[in-house]
Write a protein that binds this DNA or RNA. Structure first.
Lengths: 123, 123
DNA sequence: ACTGGCGTTAGCCGGTAAGCGAACGAGCGC
DNA sequence: GCGCTCGTTCGCTTACCGGCTAACGCCAGT
């Protein structure tokens, strides 16, 4: 499924699960007005803590969760909020990203990297 | 060289180059008090535009520049500010980062990725 | 002793974001 | 018609952050 933004995503998922807006707000520990604003894309997505709760409440699959995180990042015009923690303080990751950027690595090259990782970890 | 934080880095480099604080502030288009605060690590590092100017003023090598960007990121508790632009809107990069995280990829694996990239682009 | 440059301090301002309570309008069951 | 639930709007408070001006204390030179 395609979603225009983070708010639309969580709104759709919430309604699918037949959860009321006020109930979800309660479960997240926020007010209903705040939640409706986020769903309507008038506020920024939540912080990671609430995003984690959200994934639990909405029972998201890993794919859906990744999608949600990406949408959360895009609205903030930043990287998905689960990634900085991994990149930060791993200077070799930063260095690799710069190398990939400077060498114009494309999608296939990144995918090949992932495949090799999987093979190596499995074998 | 090791630097405790971004401010210490730019302060050290500035003094090495025998540039006065007020002069550097002028060149960056900011006030001297603001600059001193940043050097003393009491304010956040600059935005990318000023970081680029800074690299030019201080005549940083690529390695020094990367180091500066990493330090700028750490102070903000975020990824180095040159990277989000590359990661964002490249969902395959986000996906690869998550895969690497979940598979516990180590430094050697990331470095191998970079080496392969270099070989492929060169050959 | 005076000046001038240097880094620094203190305090202020404007913008933006998180988050809330009060109150509202629409729909529905009785 | 009444009352309830639901989503929503309005306006407010609080906090942080970028950036500034004014003014300070410290030397070095004259």
């Amino acid at each position: 499924m395609e979603y225009a933004n983070f708010g639309e995503f969580i709104s759709t998922k919430r309604i699918e699960k037949k959860i009321t807006l006020r109930e979800m707000a309660d479960r997240l520990g926020i007010s209903a007005p705040f939640l409706t604003d986020v769903e309507k894309d008038r506020r920024n997505p939540f912080d990671m803590e609430k995003l984690t709760q959200l994934a639990d409440i909405l029972q998201l699959s890993k794919e859906e969760n990744d999608q949600m995180l990406n949408l959360a990042g895009k609205k903030r015009n930043a990287v998905a909020p689960d990634l900085p923690g991994y990149i930060m303080n791993r200077d070799y990751v930063s260095a690799a990203l710069r190398a990939a950027r400077d060498l114009d690595a494309g999608e296939e090259e990144w995918n090949r990297f992932v495949e090799e990782l999987k093979n190596r970890k499995k074998g």
